[in-house]
Design a protein around this nucleic acid. Structure first.
Length: 639
RNA sequence: GCCAGCAUAGCUCAGCUGGUAGAGCAGCUGAUUUGUAAUCAGCUGGUCGGGGGUUCGAGUCCCUCUGCUGGCUCCA
């Protein structure tokens, strides 16, 4: 007999060799039906794998992250079986579960797989799932495994086998498909009831761009059709909120092939929105001691040779601009920091003026790879809400707290009340990767950790993710659809102060090297606005939205009255427009609803007689008639 | 940059296996003067993304460039 310990601490005795599935059955049939896999001593196992020693056991179902992962991993195998059935001779790379679903990288040989093939593969998968095949685990000697895949001619699996040790190799088999796989898997294919293959695209073998490219088929499966329907509905919703679509419809921004790919053009409404965001941040920064500067869009090539950016990125970016003078070269600025370093170096600095916080809404240009461009979120010219804080090492923590406070204020005002912070530290096993002394790194890392703790942030710490020049903290927000986005960043930098030989005179009358902190709460205006659009579905907060109201006269007779109201409201800094088109009121309301203008003020004979407006809120309907004075109060209550 | 796909009017799309382009919406003009999500009628609008080729003939087939979409790689 062996002792099985459950998550609640309860211990039960079972025969040695009992499986998780049998344990589940001993508790309840319903539970057994739902078990997908099990965590045995913290490791995820097949529910059908015998347990021979005392163990802790957690049964995993669809409600567990690991249960879903098992389900999707098995779905990948099912897809592979379908592919092999339809396209004999197809070779398989890797097929793991992912956050939402699974993929399998395959080499289809001479034929091409496209979107058109997906429906057929789905059908085959459903057919195979209904065969109710068990997933069977088998331990296989390495020699046998090699022989099997040699026979099959699958060089990818053979390559994977090279890295595996004899005695640790397992095969999984379901139906007519055998795969090299560590597992675990669900008990039977019959659990997979609903299948949708979503994408087909290229993927490099082993994520290495020098190796050949495979075809990646991505899909998702569910135990119930209803869950698939809900998931597809969510995808539809995300599509409706796509900032590229909304940005075009709301006339916020545009792109032009003639101007160039990845170079956004801000239309009047988008510019209004962006200016309001910028001004808001400027005010918050001023309260916190930042000094605003403006620097040119280009700089001598030597500036970036000094900063090191030219060496690292020069050949992959916009190429130098030449002048009539021979040998003279300028670069479009890819970063604001070198310019800001020059501001610091402008004259001798005293410790008394530190921390010096230099802020700039600086537009930078980077030649992103063509395949990477995406709406506003990945562009070749963008404006960072940048600042560089030059301070003494012992001031780093205080400055971090200052930046965290700013970021929290800014994000919560934007409706991102919750965010997590990813702290990226050195790789302890590889200290030579980093510049700067251990001493300053220790101070900075401790400062970040302390500051995050003091600010009560939700944090995730990742070792080895620090930049070579310093540790950093990135802000991750979740949007209304539950998607995660990386927004702003704070980075400590020991590199640039060295390269630019920055110094301040300390209280000891000696020269010292300042620490530099890069930070951008939004990251870039472009990327932030893209996320804001998708999070709000284009219904921006009232203070931020380009037009706060639309005045809708019932007929042309009341246009003058509307213009009068518009002027009255302008005195209270309430902005909007008059829809003076010769259209019915129903039409004007419909068009305004679609434009997502938050407030509609409807004006006809009744209102004109009593100096009133009839208020309707976007998406929320009629709010009744009120005097202008009352409306101003009502408006303020909405802010 | 790589893989797969797409590009027809301002927008959304139709146009079978090659036989010199069509709808709805938008826009313009007129009528209507309207009470909480589309008033009616008429009209305009496209060298079918650019260039090259095959063909008697190309929106349709081939090549190439540009842009876009989904992946991959990258992201100071």
């Amino acid at each position: 007999m062996i002792n099985i310990t459950f998550p609640d601490g309860r211990v039960s005795q079972y025969e040695s060799g009992v499986t998780a599935m049998q344990v589940a059955s001993s508790i309840s049939e319903g539970l057994a039906r739902n078990v997908l896999s099990a965590k045995v001593n913290g490791e995820v196992w097949d529910a059908s794998r015998p347990i021979h020693h005392d163990a802790t056991l957690q049964l995993l179902t669809w409600d567990d992250k690991d249960g879903k992962a098992t389900f999707w991993h098995s779905s990948a195998h099912l897809m592979a079986e379908a592919l092999e059935a339809i396209f004999p001779g197809v070779k398989f790379g890797a097929g793991p579960p992912i956050e939402n679903g699974f993929y399998y990288d395959v080499d289809p040989g001479d034929r091409k797989l496209g979107e058109d093939d997906l429906a057929r593969i789905e059908q085959k998968m459903l057919e195979l799932a209904r065969n109710k095949s068990d997933y069977v685990r088998r331990e296989v000697p390495k020699a046998e495994a090699i022989a099997y895949f040699k026979e099959k001619g699958d060089e990818y699996k053979l390559e994977l086998l090279e890295d595996l040790e004899d005695g640790t190799i397992t095969f999984y088999e379901q139906g007519n498909f055998v795969d090299l796989c560590r597992g675990p898997h669900i008990p039977n294919t019959d659990k997979i009831k609903a299948i949708k293959l979503l994408k087909v695209g290229g993927a490099y073998w082993r994520n290495d761009e020098t190796r050949n490219q495979m075809t990646r088929i991505t899909g998702i499966t569910f135990p119930k059709q209803k869950e698939l329907d809900e998931y597809l509905h969510m995808l539809e919703e995300a599509k409706k909120r796509d900032h590229r679509k909304l940005g075009t419809e709301l006339e916020l921004f545009m792109f032009s092939e003639r101007v160039g790919a990845g170079l956004p053009i801000w239309l009047p409404k988008g510019t209004q929105l962006r200016e309001r965001l910028t001004n808001f941040l400027k005010e918050e920064q001023e309260k916190r001691g930042y000094k605003l500067v403006v620097t040119p869009h280009i700089g001598h090539k030597n500036l970036y040779v000094t900063s090191g950016h030219y060496e690292k990125y020069g050949k992959d970016s916009f190429q130098p601009i030449h002048t009539p003078r021979e040998g003279e070269e300028f670069l479009l600025k890819p970063m604001n920091c070198p310019h800001h370093c020059e501001i610091f170096a402008n004259r001798p600095r005293s410790y008394k003026e530190l921390p010096l916080r230099i802020a700039e809404f600086g537009t930078v240009y980077r030649y992103e790879q063509s395949g990477e461009l995406h709406g506003l979120s990945r562009v070749r010219g963008f404006t960072q809400d940048d600042a560089h804080i030059f301070c003494m090492p012992e001031q780093v923590k205080g400055e971090f707290l200052n930046v965290l406070d700013l970021t929290r204020t800014v994000l919560s005002k934007m409706g991102f009340a919750e965010f997590t912070a990813q702290i990226s530290l050195r790789d302890p096993n590889n200290p030579s990767k980093y510049i700067g002394s251990d001493e300053v790194w220790n101070i900075a890392e401790a400062a970040i950790i302390d500051a995050a703790k003091e600010a009560n942030l939700n944090t995730v710490t990742v070792l080895g993710e620090a930049a070579f020049y310093g540790p950093k903290l990135d802000f991750m927000v979740k949007d209304a659809l539950g998607r995660s986005w990386q927004l702003g960043t704070i980075q400590v930098d020991y590199n640039l102060p060295n390269r630019f030989e920055l110094e301040y005179i300390g209280p000891d009358n000696q020269a010292h090297r300042p620490v530099m902190i890069h930070r951008a709460p939004f990251g870039s205006m472009e990327r932030f606005i893209s996320i804001l659009i998708e999070n709000t579905a284009g219904k921006f907060p009232l203070w931020l939205t380009p037009d706060q109201y639309a005045l809708l006269p019932i007929s042309e007779r009341y246009v003058d009255y509307c213009t009068d109201i518009q002027q009255q409201l302008a005195k209270f800094d309430i902005r909007g427009f008059v829809d003076d088109r010769n259209e019915t009121i129903g039409r004007k309301i419909r068009d305004t609803e679609i434009k997502k203008v938050p407030i509609m003020l409807i004006v006809g004979e009744k209102e004109a007689e009593s100096n009133a407006v009839s208020v309707r809120l976007q998406g929320d309907g009629d709010k009744g008639s009120m005097s202008i004075e009352l409306f101003v109060e009502y408006f303020k209550s909405l802010l």
